[in-house]
Amino acid sequence: MPDQYSIAQARDRFAQIVHQAENGKPVEITRRGQSVAVVLSLSEYQRLTREKSKFGAELATFREKYQISTLNINPDEVFSNVRDRTSGREVNF
């Protein structure tokens, strides 16, 4: 659970709150006991707001980074027997 400060406390401890956020600990700000804001580090904010990439693009990046093509792996052979193709158990409703 993040540390929690009222707006008045946050005003008095602003430098401390920023330091906590920089060190990766989010700080919750409240007004009259209700949460109204959270102070995060810039890196955490950027992580949360960055544009999400598509699975295919990430897979291509992974394959390029780890040079999967040089391993001579045929995905059709590797994954051909992963799934059990039987009909499963009989269920009575």
Rank of each mutant, 00 (worst) to 15 (best):
Q4F: 03
Y5R: 06
S6V: 01
A8S: 09
A8N: 06
Q9R: 09
Q9D: 13
A10S: 08
D12E: 14
F14S: 06
I17A: 06
V18S: 09
A21G: 05
A21D: 05
N23C: 09
N23Q: 14
G24R: 04
G24M: 04
K25T: 08
E28F: 00
I29M: 07
I29C: 07
R31A: 08
R31D: 07
G33R: 01
V36N: 02
A37I: 02
A37D: 06
V38P: 00
V39P: 04
L42K: 09
L42W: 02
E44S: 03
Y45A: 13
Q46W: 04
L48D: 08
T49E: 09
R50E: 11
K52E: 07
K52W: 01
S53T: 12
S53P: 03
S53G: 07
K54M: 01
G56T: 09
A57Y: 03
A57S: 12
A57M: 03
L59W: 06
A60W: 08
T61C: 08
R63W: 09
R63E: 14
R63C: 14
Q67P: 00
S69E: 15
S69N: 13
T70C: 05
L71Q: 13
L71M: 14
L71Y: 09
D76K: 15
S80E: 12
N81V: 08
R83A: 14
R83P: 00
R85Q: 10
R85W: 02
G88W: 03
E90L: 14
V91S: 06
F93R: 08
F93P: 05
F93C: 04
